[in-house]
């Protein structure tokens, strides 16, 4: 079940991007999402494109995985492209098909927006493809650390996230097991009228809830027995280390932004 979810899944390889600090990668995504909107002509989009492809090349992620990540969005991209081509009426008329006219502005705008989409998806999936979920959690916890001053439960949120990550495969397995057990008792999860199928969720969900609560209770006891009493006085085993590479990445972001300002029209 878990193995079917390929989109955005961590691919453990050894590459400069993999080795980078999750904080710098998170910052990269954040800033990239902002600066993407600076691009407004062919040159600036080309700059963004070059930047994205350098990152991809550095990550050594096979194109197949990236394409898988794009697949669900592909329809949306094509749709916006067509929308702009047919409905934006700017610039010179390129083709006149009688019932509809295609304008230069529309075509360009359509291409730009789909490129913007593609770059955004590529860079964000690059983050999840090259960083293990737990590192992302650690990075977030550190970056949001200052918010603790304003009583934001940053540590608790991070712990919740890491425990959820830990239990996802366990719960998936459990779901499959209960589904099989109820199928053996005559439940049909995959065919039959919709009403019946909705009803068949109950024998799946109730045991799943019951066991999750039991797990939560057990886990709470186990955590308490191991001395967990909140974030106070706690140290962290996982240390993040900011390296030259990370600083370089940040510099490249500055350069990227500068270039975009320089060449935008």
């Amino acid at each position: 079940m878990l193995d079917k979810m390929i989109f955005g899944r961590f691919v453990p390889l050894d590459s400069p991007i993999h080795r980078m600090d999750p904080r710098s990668k998170l910052l990269l995504v954040f800033f990239f999402v902002c600066v993407v909107f600076l691009a407004n002509n062919l040159v600036t989009y080309a700059i963004l494109g070059v930047f994205t492809f350098i990152l991809i090349a550095l990550s050594r992620i096979p194109a197949r995985f990236l394409f898988n990540g794009l697949k669900p969005i592909l329809l949306l991209i094509v749709f916006t492209l067509l929308l702009h081509i047919f409905f934006t009426k700017e610039g010179a008329v390129l083709f006149d098909l009688g019932f509809v006219k295609i304008y230069e502005g529309g075509l360009l705008e359509g291409i730009y927006i789909s490129m913007r989409f593609t770059f955004l998806i590529l860079v964000t999936s690059l983050l999840t493809l090259t960083t293990s979920p737990i590192s992302i959690t650690d990075g977030m916890e550190q970056l949001l650390g200052p918010l603790k001053k304003w009583k934001m439960p940053v540590h608790e949120l991070a712990l919740m996230m890491s425990i959820s990550l830990r239990f996802i495969p366990t719960l998936m397995e459990e779901t499959e097991k209960i589904m099989k057990a109820q199928t053996a008792r005559g439940v049909d999860f995959s065919s039959g009228p919709v009403k019946e199928r909705v009803k068949s969720i109950v024998p799946l969900l109730v045991p799943l809830f019951v066991s999750s609560f039991k797990r939560a209770e057990d886990l709470a006891i186990a955590m308490e027995a191991r001395g967990y009493r909140g974030s106070e006085g706690r140290t962290k085993y996982r240390q993040l280390s900011w390296q030259t590479l990370d600083t370089l990445l940040m510099c490249s972001l500055v350069v990227l932004t500068a270039l975009l300002f320089l060449f935008r029209s």
Binding site: I134, D218, L219, Y228
Partner: peptide, 28 residues
């Protein structure tokens, strides 16, 4: 405890072993 799954807190083996140490505030 009895259930091997319900007492595994960390996402990996080393994280789990470290959990109790983190709680005690042991140096990294």
């Amino acid at each position: 405890f009895q259930n091997p799954d319900n007492q595994f807190v960390g996402t990996t083996v080393q994280d789990d072993v470290a959990f109790g140490l983190e709680n005690l505030g042991v140096q990294q």
